[in-house]
Nucleic acid binder design. Sequence first.
DNA 1: TGAAAGGACCGTAACGGTTCAGAACCAATT
DNA 2: AATTGGTTCTGAACCGTTACGGTCCTTTCA
Lengths: 367, 367
Amino acid sequence: MARSMHVRRPATLASLAAELGVSRTTVSNAYNRPDQLSPELRRRVLDTARRLGYPGPDPVARSLRTRKAGAVGLLLTENLSYAFRDPAAIGFLEGLALACEDAGTGLLLVPANPEREDVAAVHRAGVDGFVVYSVPDDDPHLAAVLERPVPTVVCDQPDIGTVDRVGIDDRGAMYELARHLIELGHRRIGVVCMRLARDRNDGFVTPDRQHAAHFHVQRNRLTGLAEAFSEAGVDWSQVPVVERFDHNMASGASGAAQVLDRDPQVTALICTSDVLALGALTEAARRGLRVPHDITVTGFDGIRAGEEAGLTTVRQPVLEKGRAAGKLLLDTNERSRPRSVNLATELIIGKTSGGPRGGAEERWFGP
Amino acid sequence: MARSMHVRRPATLASLAAELGVSRTTVSNAYNRPDQLSPELRRRVLDTARRLGYPGPDPVARSLRTRKAGAVGLLLTENLSYAFRDPAAIGFLEGLALACEDAGTGLLLVPANPEREDVAAVHRAGVDGFVVYSVPDDDPHLAAVLERPVPTVVCDQPDIGTVDRVGIDDRGAMYELARHLIELGHRRIGVVCMRLARDRNDGFVTPDRQHAAHFHVQRNRLTGLAEAFSEAGVDWSQVPVVERFDHNMASGASGAAQVLDRDPQVTALICTSDVLALGALTEAARRGLRVPHDITVTGFDGIRAGEEAGLTTVRQPVLEKGRAAGKLLLDTNERSRPRSVNLATELIIGKTSGGPRGGAEERWFGP
DNA sequence: TGAAAGGACCGTAACGGTTCAGAACCAATT
DNA sequence: AATTGGTTCTGAACCGTTACGGTCCTTTCA
């Protein structure tokens, strides 16, 4: 009725051009190429735009025409909020955000709910490229991203050869950490790791499941451990490895408890992340175990809270990883072939690791 | 030369339809409305699409036609990475991300560099709405957002009447905190606050600058303090208020130092954020001042690290704030008029506040 | 004075889809 | 035999912009 009378359709470039009696091109140029028209006309265009309430060229229409969205997508395949809980993920995000900011590019967080396998969000994302961060290698969202005809960088993922990749040498880094423990004398160990696949399996992990793990990072860290300890004469198939689906301190604590219940004699608890290790520390404390006197605990990542706790861990440059991923994606160079970047890690020997049964003091005051 | 021979242009809906001998509509339906065509034909379409390497309908073209981008923009007007440094901002982001995830909507971080006043990023953002979080009220990016014809929610900003708003009662919450200190007996106080405007002014703040502050949150917190202490007979114009541009613990420490250098007799250091307060605590420790015996320190926000330090503060529901902003924005209800939501805060009396000159114990063991 | 150069503006053709009102066809009902 | 209804598919309009390749007019310079 009367309501629909004055719903004048919003102004467009064309209507503005008609009002002014100039071509659409000219109006477009007023916004995008001021040098292509006289200052007076430009002012007239802009004034009329203001008068008509024209908000400037529609970004979507512009993107369609220019084939540039001015944004990159980030795929996390966790509850989106996961990214804001995990310190390592936050660091990665910050680095990626920095790279985007430098390039004046937006960063689109793609809502990829792991529950319902709804890949539509990936299809809907108007972006110039994707960064994929630590998703299971059989994730349908990842597959959907790879089908999109835009450049992609995978991070903490296996090198699939067709797209750029940035990561660290998880296997090597964990191998080095294991060597440290072996040199301290540890042979009877337990492991707490993050989830290895998309299904929930809170409990002990068979060697089969370890090998078949769909999370590249976890798989390689376990492999590094297995290699080092096997070389040291430990039968890896007998080592208790506990998996936790949720990644938080509570999981670390309960995982540690499960290991210690199975074998109270373990002298070292190796966790595949600092967050889990911090949880393991609380469980050790709860049991009255002194660290590292009674038990050694190690992590992985090098997060701030771990540092404050003096955690023995592997520090990885999470921020740099994000930044590198962004730079790789936004680097418009004629790329010869997919690039693969490995960032350096650093073994941090803190005060949560020592020789079995109180041998720690030797390290503290030794040479 | 030969290189350009096989650069067959990427498949489109139209080319696919031509190949199949069906209309574009049918191909479109194959993707968007499976019930509109026979299963066999649909399969044939999808198979051919795979064979031709057609990645599915282009998201940008779709957005242009449907007038839906499937994403909301977030404007922070800080270095984008700021959001990942500040715990309160992270909480807000997480809440907002949760709301977006629930709605299957993407979240676009708009690169709004505060240095160069380049508003283009706001114009380029293909989004269905904006959330604006804690930017100075005279920020050109904010103005640019308000000119875009999309729904907007401002958060921790003044109510401008034309768009939805979510926030807390900063003035009232700070007033309450001030009352707590007044009841403890504090009259000689100092304040460390975050930046009040877009220009850098690391130092003492005149009452004029306090009133003219462009950051709504800071202005209101200072007002709450001024009101309470004025009522208690304190001449607010004599109270040292120090401003810091950068928001980190180092700023808190140096700000506290500046206050204490000016007036070593202050019995309470009121900081307008927990991060600043944590810095102030380190400065107090550096000077050998016992907290709260020698000096009281308070914060604002209720972040985790503050909780662990036993900080007296005002806890605000940062995550809920983000979630509320997202819900407000994504709620498609016929909105009668712009809505304004105030979330509740809670005064947390920790162990960093006590009576002046060692009066704290009375509170600890008192009734 | 004529040719060349340059500035200012324009027309057309995409960009790649979605949508809606039908058309064509077939089976079932009246 | 005509009507109805349902399914399946089509044609054309439209979304709002920018790229491209002009035209036209004014200056400049030999």
